[in-house]
């Protein structure tokens, strides 16, 4: 594989997206605070968006991939707003955002 035309190979983008997904899942499980888990979730969103863009650009309609990524960005922004307000509310009630201490529903 010639290094000079690496950016025109869809396999490179798909591999980067898979790597981002794996990193995000690793962080989602290993992080012990709500904000850390939220950031890992954002990385998983980024992986999905990169996949949509790659498939749209190389295999399907060029504009549709971009439109789907715009929708993903909108949903991610809504998710961050809700999740952060939940984090603030949890911190007010528990004085902590460590996931190990939020065990009121544990039975």
């Amino acid at each position: 594989m010639n290094i000079a035309d690496l950016y025109s190979k869809p396999a490179v983008y798909l591999t980067v997206a898979a790597l981002l997904l794996a990193i995000g899942i690793f962080g989602l499980v290993r992080r012990r605070t709500l904000v850390g888990m939220l950031i890992s979730g954002e990385i998983i969103f980024a992986a999905a968006a990169l996949n949509f863009m790659t498939v749209g650009h190389f295999f399907a309609d060029a504009a549709v991939g971009q439109i789907f990524v715009l929708f993903i960005m909108g949903l991610a922004a809504a998710e961050v707003a809700i999740a952060l307000s939940i984090v603030i509310a949890v911190y007010r009630n528990y004085h902590s955002i460590k996931t190990a201490e939020l065990t009121e529903l544990k039975g």
Binding site: R32, T33, G36, V80, L84, V87, I88, I97
Partner: peptide, 13 residues
């Protein structure tokens, strides 16, 4: 997220 960190707590336990 930085605003939320400033309102909550900064570090991983």
């Amino acid at each position: 997220i930085i605003f939320a960190i400033m309102l909550a707590e900064p570090d991983e336990p």
